[in-house]
Design a protein around this nucleic acid. Structure first.
Length: 459
DNA sequence: TTAGGGTTAG
């Protein structure tokens, strides 16, 4: 008869196989175990569910749950948390919420992980209000929040555009009995940087260093990006050197950030040196790195080499994505080669990717700059979503050909929808109306923009 | 369960 010891061994074996992604083999071991009288327990099933969620398919994970129930093994809190993490990873907020409710219905009490996972999923999928509600439910439950809960909350504040609340939560951590840890600082650094608060981000980085917490690869990469964007290129490279000297020598994210920064400064040869260094280190080059290099070639108007990289991507067994094609579309648009740009849009479609907002925006910008405003307008009308880039590019194009009244209509749409556009676009429309003898219309437009609070939207 | 990379306007 199979005892607890044998089940423990079975679980260790299943754990290693799942970790190595050998799920078929793991399933065979389970079957063999059953044949020998060693019945899988809740840990065995939870391990399999986690592996199916992570490496295969969410539906397959549910099949394991059915098998588990048929075998008379009751799902526990870990089963639910694992499924919720899977739902979160697959961006399925309703599924995640359903699992959370279902667990209570089945007499399983949610723990801190359950609350954290649900909050994270809801924030990530764009439901901050529901996520806040979960946080408040957690506080009124018997489950205590942890530093991970607060890290998730701070990240959620940033993701939902509430940087001020994120900073407040960070500053109040000690009041709640916690001290910021590495992930807290990394979340703050990244959140502040993404919210455009680069000065505050740099201060947080300094504060972290002074607190004695050692940065990791994520800290260095975010800090570098922040420094590069703040036009402190040399300081950004110093951070990269420090990162290398601290032994983070094979981090593909960091290399990718540096390659992109070099490319933006037109240092294509240095970007190539980086790639060579990566190959020398035995590092795999992933699609993001290739995309950064394609961008470097496009930037120096070397479309031939950019296109040649597509073959390399294929040879490396990778598949081009939206970044690859939109970078190429932009490269061709900047050269005024709209036929090749459109060709890349078609390739994108035949590859099963919908031409994205960036590709369309590049097309609009390129067409406007080439004076083909009507063509740009027809593309603009076709677009399902438009953002600040789309409107700014179009406004500039319309102003360039003197169509200030049409531009003024689009500007009012932006004001009404709260879509911010470049300061220069707003100025171009107002100045254009005034200079072409429509001073009264300019005044009316300015008044309407003030009324909509649109003139305060300066970045 | 929480944190990092790659594309577009001026």
């Amino acid at each position: 008869m199979c005892g607890k010891f044998s089940t423990l061994l079975l679980n260790i074996c299943i754990g290693s196989l799942c970790k190595a992604r050998r799920l078929d083999k793991a399933e065979f071991v389970v079957v063999d175990g059953i044949r020998l009288g060693c019945l899988p327990d809740v840990v065995t099933y939870n391990t399999l569910i986690a592996a199916y969620c992570r490496f295969v398919d969410f539906d397959q994970a549910y099949l394991i749950v059915s098998r588990m129930k048929e075998a008379g093994v009751k799902p526990d809190v870990v089963t639910y948390n694992t499924l919720m993490a899977g739902a979160s990873r697959h961006n399925l907020p309703s599924q995640c919420q359903y699992l959370f409710q279902d667990m209570s219905k089945n007499g399983v009490v949610p723990d801190e992980w359950s609350y954290n996972t649900l909050m994270h999923c809801l924030f990530n999928c764009g439901y901050p209000e529901v996520a806040f509600k979960i946080f408040s439910d957690m506080n009124s439950s018997s489950v205590s929040p942890s530093i991970i809960t607060y890290n998730t909350l701070i990240n959620g504040y940033f993701k939902s555009g509430r940087a001020v609340n994120a900073v407040m939560a960070f500053r109040r951590l000690q009041k709640f009995g916690f001290s910021p840890e590495l992930v807290t600082y990394n979340t703050m650094l990244h959140g502040l940087f993404k919210s455009g608060k680069r000065g505050q981000a740099r201060r947080i980085y300094k504060e972290m260093r002074e607190s004695g917490i050692a940065p990791n690869a994520a800290t260095y990469t975010t800090a570098m990006k922040c420094w590069f964007r703040s036009r402190n290129f040399e300081d950004g490279l110093d951070i990269f050197s420090e990162m290398m000297s601290r032994g983070y020598t094979s981090d593909v994210f960091a290399y990718c950030t540096v390659i992109s920064a070099l490319a933006k400064r037109g240092k294509t040869e240095d970007a190539r040196v980086c790639i060579r260094q990566m190959l020398k280190n035995g590092q795999g080059i992933d699609l993001a790195c290739y995309n950064a290099l394609i961008y470097a070639y496009c930037k120096e108007k070397n479309m031939n080499d950019a296109l040649l990289l597509l073959n390399e991507i294929e040879e490396a067994g990778l598949e081009c994505d939206g970044y690859t094609y939109s970078t190429l579309v932009d490269g061709f648009c900047k050269l005024g080669d709209f036929s090749s740009a459109m060709n890349q849009m078609r390739v994108m479609e035949t590859s099963g990717l919908n031409p994205n907002l960036v590709a369309y925006n590049s097309l609009i910008d390129g067409l406007c700059k080439a004076g083909m405003v009507d063509h740009a307008l027809s593309i603009f009308k076709m677009m399902r979503t438009r953002d600040s880039f789309s409107y700014s590019a179009l406004l500039h194009g319309l102003c360039k050909v003197g169509r200030f009244h049409v531009a003024s209509k689009f500007l009012l749409i932006c004001a009404r929808k709260g879509i911010n556009v470049l300061k220069s676009s707003k100025r171009a429309v107002l100045r254009g109306l005034r200079c072409s003898g429509f001073g009264r219309d300019a005044k009316k437009l300015k008044a309407a923009m003030w009324k909509a609070g649109f003139l305060h939207y300066e970045k």
